[in-house]
Nucleic acid binder design. Sequence first.
DNA 1: TTGTATGCGTTATCAT
DNA 2: ATGATAACGCATACAA
Lengths: 338, 338
Amino acid sequence: MKKENSAPTMKDVAREAGVALGTVSKVVNGLPVGESYRLRVEEAIRKLNYQINSYAQGLKANKTYTVALLIPNTREPFFGLLAYHINLALLKRHYRMLLLCTDSDSAQEQEYITMAQQNKVDGIIGLTYNPDLIIEENTPFVSVDRSLGPKIPCVACDNFAGGQLAAEKLADLGCRHVAFLRAGSALNNEPNKRKAGFENGCLSRSLTYEMKIINDGDSYEEFEVFLKEHISEGKLAFDGIFCVNDGLAHFTRNALSRLGVRVPQDVQLIGFDGTRYFGNSNYICSTIVQPVAEMAEICVELLFQESMTTKPPLVCLPVTYACGGTTLDSDFAEPDQT
Amino acid sequence: MKKENSAPTMKDVAREAGVALGTVSKVVNGLPVGESYRLRVEEAIRKLNYQINSYAQGLKANKTYTVALLIPNTREPFFGLLAYHINLALLKRHYRMLLLCTDSDSAQEQEYITMAQQNKVDGIIGLTYNPDLIIEENTPFVSVDRSLGPKIPCVACDNFAGGQLAAEKLADLGCRHVAFLRAGSALNNEPNKRKAGFENGCLSRSLTYEMKIINDGDSYEEFEVFLKEHISEGKLAFDGIFCVNDGLAHFTRNALSRLGVRVPQDVQLIGFDGTRYFGNSNYICSTIVQPVAEMAEICVELLFQESMTTKPPLVCLPVTYACGGTTLDSDFAEPDQT
DNA sequence: TTGTATGCGTTATCAT
DNA sequence: ATGATAACGCATACAA
């Protein structure tokens, strides 16, 4: 990388304006300064195209005006969307965002956090999977989707309510015997509550249900086997399926297609996350939509909140249901007019 | 945001180890130092959990070890994927990445660039749309998908070859009369070459074709009108369609469905970009795949390359074709075993 | 009010 | 080889 021809500094501006260094600093920071001096300095700033070096500034203030976002990646739709909204929320507050894709690697997660810890960033927002992260208390930390202890706020959508809503929707759509499919970490994170919410919803609406839960490393193949086992005489035993996320719902739809089961005619399918194909195009499946923009905003607000005492340990934001063509909603319009 | 209880500094380490400041610096930077001193310092570093403050380091070196990525967003699949790979390529080299989502806003783009220009970052990678960006020469800049002048390297996939490949594939698949659909900026960017490549391919393979090109702000509705106008007696005039990107291909598929035209039986459809539903799941449509990981790697390499003279003004990387179910490829397997 | 001097954490140039 | 010191760009307490 080419060397920089060093940008103008306050010293340059001071020389140009014929004033002292401190005066320039005051002008830049909006402190009271004689009118004629101010004008001279502002003129010099314009002329030299001076911009403050916020790292040097931060060296004094012991701040970097930078927040790190730890996230597995930006290529999965949900992660990409979350990163986008958090980026916006931070830039709006004139904070920079360091992106640190961890690929869900525990060692990476810890390494980046340790790095950030040492005054390199003013705060961290993390969507992590490492079961035993070490987070010292001197850097504000907000966790997404996973509680990291009582002193670290966790932001998530209302996963329990989302599971419940899925069950209720399936009931409303006429389902009687449904299935819950989940592939998830053994970690005790918020999305795991989708299962409990779903079961609760099934009970309250008198739906009978079966569950297929596979472990982290296991192949999705197992779901296809499970579904196959529940087909007899060409007919699937379920009339509704709730998948723990849209990725699995997408897989399930393909698997059902391979098995000759039609969606939504033979079985209705609901996913979770609110994944769309592109920007604002239609949803890839009927789904429980996470309020990603609001979650991002809350994350940033909590991070910037001074007092620890008022920080809630867990914030759950309301979810909504949206039809994406894998259910038989009566009011569903044709998709995608984008 | 809570104040930081300042991490340990070199001074703390020096005191702890009972040596001078400069000695610690040498140990940290691997410069020759007496064995016994080295051990004492290393011990102190471990004990205090010291990590270097690279911003203070950068203050001396006039570097920030940070690269800015300017990109419209991370929510569109292609952008999210590109951001992910660029992030990885930079982290691999121990560089940080600042994410700056511009929402394709010209003013934002210029503002972020100006900011970065003033020594805040060591380099910039930008996927921008502002027709008259001002980029001073002292910050290395690599542009994606758009040439910003002879002194600024541009990295893109081989868009011309991609367009040509799409035409050839459609010809191979038995098409005779095809259409090209494009919604794009008036900007002279690389993806615009897809059109020329496609026309070239059509000519060489004796395909007849029509084109529908709409302007930036226009509604996709116009494409649906165009398609409708080319249906007579329930039959579409085209047997193949090439869309300038997968987003448009997705829309087109939905529009065709609304018009009662079946894909791929009645008309075959090829998009561009290589968009997948999730991580490594199947493609959302048959598509020309951009080599995103390679593009990211080249971007970073060019940015780090010292000499300007060897920097090529334009690097085009080879594309490939992948079936995604919207064409009648004979060798297409069932999708998505993820 | 304006200018001067000191220190933030680091590196590099000096003497020692 | 090691320790003291100046300098990087900026903020600020203090002197003028």
